[in-house]
Write a protein that binds this DNA or RNA. Structure first.
Length: 270
DNA sequence: AGTTTAACCTGGGTGC
DNA sequence: TGCACCCAGGTTAAAC
């Protein structure tokens, strides 16, 4: 489910229930996620206070006084605040119970998600080489252009590379390229500065808009508060293969790029 | 160093 | 109803 807006929506939904709370108990029902859930999660976390819930790329970082829990939702992960006495479902792999009587419940049917423990997130191998956050000032058109000099890959794969910029997943990559009028297959190093400026702006605006309306509901994504996201209604091309382009009415094209489904308008995007 | 490919999983939808 | 088949929001590790 989760792209950056969905992760951010989850963070905003659960943070009020968790920040400054002491962890009372951790229940791990299934350790086989993307990587085995380290025993530090159940052994180190209880007793500690969650001081801040931050996000880096699509990772949620639960910072305590003595260590940070890193959580990734993978393809099918979701988080809810529950009463821990509520029976756990088949794919509810982990509960983090806190002092206010609530628990964070991590569900992930496909188990591509992960839960890790680190003393220093900035130095963690999975985080240290990530590109800039798309919603910060250092991410802009000139940055994209400079970074693309040596890259011959299609621009869609370029903006989905987390070493270039984080948080642009398959849905919003297609959407941003539509807004910028750029063909997803265009080689990254063959886009001039002005169009890179437009692309950076399109990425920012599509992510900001999706966060503002609570993410995109696909299948069963819900934010931490259980409310569905409404960005689905605003998708211009993603999942609309064969349907008329909202701008020019020409049928939206569907192709596969880097083993991911890709949608664009061959008239509006060059 | 950049690019491509396979791999990790389950569940839902479709078509026969 | 059952079953085979295809598809899905992500990311890494290894091979080229």
């Amino acid at each position: 489910m989760p792209e950056l807006p969905e992760v951010e929506t989850s963070r905003l939904g659960i943070a009020p229930w968790l920040e400054q709370q002491q962890v009372l108990k951790v229940v791990v029902r299934e350790r086989r996620l993307r990587w085995p859930v380290p025993t530090a999660i159940d052994h180190e976390l209880p007793g500690k206070f969650i001081r801040a819930l931050r996000r880096r790329a699509k990772y949620l970082l639960f910072e305590t006084d003595g260590g940070t829990m890193m959580l990734h939702l993978g393809m099918s992960g979701s988080l809810r605040i529950v009463d821990p006495r509520e029976p756990a479902g088949k794919h509810d792999h982990v509960d983090i119970e806190v002092a206010n009587g609530k628990a964070l419940r991590f569900r992930d049917p496909r188990r591509f998600g992960s839960l890790l423990w680190t003393a220093d997130p900035d130095a963690h191998p999975l985080l240290k080489d990530l590109g800039p956050e798309p919603l910060t000032p250092e991410f802009d058109g000139p940055y994209l252009w400079r970074t693309a000099r040596s890259r011959r890959i299609p621009v869609k794969q370029f903006i989905m590379d987390s070493g270039v910029v984080v948080g642009v997943g398959n849905i919003y990559a297609s959407e941003a390229l539509f807004l910028a009028g750029i063909h997803p297959r265009r080689r990254a190093n063959r886009i001039a500065v002005p169009r890179m400026v437009a692309l950076a702006e399109a990425i920012r605006s599509v992510l900001l808009r999706a966060i503002a309306v609570g993410g995109t509901t696909l299948r069963d994504f819900h934010g931490g508060d259980g409310e569905p996201g409404y960005f689905l209604r605003e998708l211009n091309v993603y999942g609309r293969g064969g349907l008329p382009c909202r701008n020019c009415l020409k049928p939206v094209s569907a192709i596969v790029l880097g083993q991911r489904s890709t949608f664009y308008c061959s008239n509006c995007q060059r």
